[in-house]
Design a binder for these strands. Structure first.
Lengths: 235, 235
DNA sequence: CTAGCTATATATAAAAC
DNA sequence: TGTTTTATATATAGCTA
């Protein structure tokens, strides 16, 4: 495989070297005819570091451009993926720009619902009609969540189809895997801590350390049950 | 100074990038005639229309990618231009993602201040103490339930102790067992139904039954995948 | 779902209007 | 500020692991 590189970014690959030469030779002679050959453009668009732009004018221009880009992206994401989105932007000058995929208010309220921190504030002010509506929504969502969790607990499985059971099982299995991994990580960490302690202790205290290890026996048993190779160097 | 390399030995140097571009463009158009080109080419990254993506998997992937892009842009705009920004996104599945350049709440409050619509609404009804209490309770319970389910899903496991992880694993494992059993029962039942149908049918229709069985192939595959050996992590 | 990859599509810095 | 142009930087669709 042969490559034609037009630095710095473009690479074109060809299977035959001869072929590449011929192609390029032709291209070169054609290119020489071009007027573009004789133009000399300057290069622009440097990469900028992500920190506050010092120059005021440049900052404003960038703000304007990037803001419109951001809103466009938000709109697109909402449309493409059927997501509910709220975007609020205050310019440095204090001007407000916003976008809400459905109703700004609905999205914000939904957000507040999820945030315990905001709960106090919510209690202070008077909830609106919409909040009460959301109360019903929350109630419904809660019921759904409860049913889902029952099924995750392996209850109420009668009504499910084979396919649904299959999905449930896969979900549980992957959850189990993650939990297992977390446990193993935790386990390895604990082993590390124990080893460190052991090294630091003077010889005449080793005994008590060993007792301590024994108390943690379950920890070791667990690892063995799961087929973990015993960590190298541990005693 | 730009270079065009025809590897490994031939190098053309050009003074302007335009030269290189034109030369390359010609080379490329010639190259396109080559069968070698067509053999290896695979076209990717088509432009997509901005409307809801039908395919569920693709939608999820796109959501994930674009979401991170959107949050990145928001962060950048906030940093570059010293703007106050709040971004709230609910996935189609109801999961919440948010970003606030300062405090989410501060930005939202500032937004609400600016919105006359909200001011009117806020002046309206005050719910009773009872409703507020229930609402808060429900909200709290919902949050708890959500956290619990996340853990059942194998997320947010960092804070848990080894013992808690162990319990979680046991719980998942027994759930998995129940689901597995339910599935096997379901499976056996379906097999029974199929057999019964087969017996009832006259001989000359056996053929079609077999075709039917074939269409249900996944059911059998499923059972094989699943069955045996017992699901990972089970004891 | 997370993570990379490649080729393309988009966003955007700079400059000029 | 708004737009357009240009050349580059970045985002991301479709795949794959």
């Amino acid at each position: 495989m042969w490559h034609i590189h037009v630095f710095p970014h473009t690479v074109f690959s060809l299977e035959s070297k001869d072929w590449a030469r011929v192609a390029f030779a032709s291209a070169f002679s054609i290119a020489k005819e071009s007027s573009a050959f004789h133009r000399n453009k300057k290069m622009v668009r440097r990469k900028i570091p992500i920190k506050k732009i010092d120059d005021v004018t440049a900052r404003q221009v960038t703000f304007s451009k990037r803001k419109s880009g951001l809103f466009k992206k938000a709109r697109e994401l909402s449309l493409l993926c059927d997501a509910e989105i709220a975007l609020i932007v205050f310019s440095p000058g204090g001007k407000l720009f916003d976008y809400g995929s459905s109703s700004m208010q609905k999205v914000i309220e939904r957000h507040i619902l999820r945030s315990e921190l905001n709960l106090e504030k919510l209690d202070q002010s008077c909830p609106t009609e919409q909040v009460r509506c959301n109360y019903a929504d929350l109630n419904k969502e809660f019921a759904d969540r409860t049913r889902e969790m029952r099924q995750l607990n392996g209850e109420e499985l009668q009504g499910l189809t084979l396919r649904e059971l299959q999905k449930l099982e896969e979900r549980l299995d992957s959850s189990l895997n993650r939990v297992y991994k977390a446990k193993v990580e935790n386990f390895i960490k604990e082993i590390g801590i124990l080893k460190e302690k052991m090294i630091k202790l003077p010889r005449n205290e080793i005994c008590s350390v060993q007792r301590h290890e024994h108390e943690q026996g379950q920890l070791f048993d667990t690892s063995l049950t799961l087929g973990l190779p015993f960590p190298a160097g541990s005693k």
